[in-house]
């Protein structure tokens, strides 16, 4: 039934493994900085302790996950995940070159593709309305420094 033949929780196993791994990596990284002593702590001292605690706690969660039954991981929504985060990355990359209006519209168009029921027409209208509203609030109102349109002069 389960890979280990006993009760377990895949949620705790994965969480524990992630925290254990990042804790160990952090401890390893901390030792590349001067340690110092308790009296005169170097930059590596405190992070080494904190990451060490993190690794120990991760190990405890991992162990608990292997021994105690608990919830597993439920479905990961790849489509919204990729489209929403992708839209944000796109915005970050093109804001300065494409200008405020086009970047905002690009973000809205990409992100709304995650919703199955929306027509292209309504997505375009939504993108236009939101970009206009944000232009009034953030550029006119708060004076944010992003050009409105792309700079077309060669």
């Amino acid at each position: 039934m389960t890979p280990f033949g006993i009760k377990h929780s895949s949620q705790d196993i994965i969480a524990g493994a992630i925290f254990l791994a990042s804790g160990l990596a952090g401890v390893f990284g901390s030792f590349s900085y001067p340690m110092g002593t308790a009296l005169q702590m170097g930059p590596g001292y405190f992070p080494a302790v904190v990451f060490g605690v993190l690794a120990a706690l991760g190990a405890a969660i991992l162990l608990k996950g292997l021994l105690v039954a608990g919830p597993g991981i439920t479905g990961w929504a790849w489509r919204p995940f990729a489209l929403v985060l992708g839209g944000l990355v796109l915005f970050a990359l093109v804001a300065q070159t494409l200008g405020f209006i086009l970047s905002c519209m690009a973000l809205v168009l990409v992100a709304t593709a995650a919703v199955p029921g929306l027509t292209l027409r309504s997505r375009l209208v939504l993108a236009l309305v939101l970009a206009g509203f944000c232009w009034v609030v953030f550029l006119l109102g708060l004076g944010i420094l992003i050009p409105t349109w792309p700079d077309l002069t060669p």
Binding site: L88, F91, A92, C104, A111, C134, F138, L142
Partner: peptide, 11 residues
């Protein structure tokens, strides 16, 4: 909300 977050973070 996404747009507010993006603009807020960018600014």
């Amino acid at each position: 909300v996404l747009l507010f977050c993006a603009i807020g973070a960018y600014s």
